[in-house]
């Protein structure tokens, strides 16, 4: 189990290697990596700064992981989420799930991202040619999270 909130970049290959090292019961790993886009809402984005609420961020991510483990038979979960300044193409977030079978890995990976986007206290500030602007929450993100209501 690992939740990491950090300013530093991460190496996806190295994380995958560490995540699967020595495991023989895992039949599949699903991974999602979120990146900074150069265009958002039709405007050029030169940089993005992610603010978060230290303490609550880790607490919420741990709760989301606990919920994923309650719903699916998972061998392991990894969530890495960066904060601070990033540029287009940079990695923001990585979620990996390991399970004996692919359905649990795929579904739980998507669940973790959908819940994270509506529950983890992060806020994106984009730098554009017109100045800085805070990203607005999307209704589609709420709808994506609502799909997982029990």
């Amino acid at each position: 189990m690992a939740i990491r909130v950090q300013a530093e970049d991460f190496d996806v290959g190295a994380e995958y290697a560490a995540f699967t090292a020595g495991r023989t019961s895992v039949g599949g790993v699903a991974m999602f990596v979120g990146l900074v886009r150069a265009i958002a809402g039709g405007e050029a984005v030169s940089a993005m700064t992610l603010e978060h609420y230290p303490g609550m961020t880790e607490k919420q991510l741990e709760a989301i992981e606990d919920e994923a483990r309650r719903r699916w038979p998972l061998d392991d979960v990894l969530v890495i989420h960066r904060h601070g300044r990033m540029e287009p193409g940079d990695r923001i977030v990585m979620v990996a799930t390991a399970s004996a079978h692919r359905d649990a890995a795929f579904e739980s990976c998507r669940f973790l991202m959908d819940w994270l986007k509506t529950k983890a206290p992060f806020w994106k500030l984009e730098a554009t040619p017109e100045g800085e602007r805070w990203v607005e929450a999307k209704e589609s993100d709420d709808a994506a999270a609502a799909r997982w209501a029990e």
Binding site: G34, L50, Y53, T118, A120, P121, F122, A137, D141
Partner: peptide, 10 residues
Amino acid sequence: VALFPPVTGG
């Protein structure tokens, strides 16, 4: 207590 806009991480 913390007050903040709807979150936009991920």
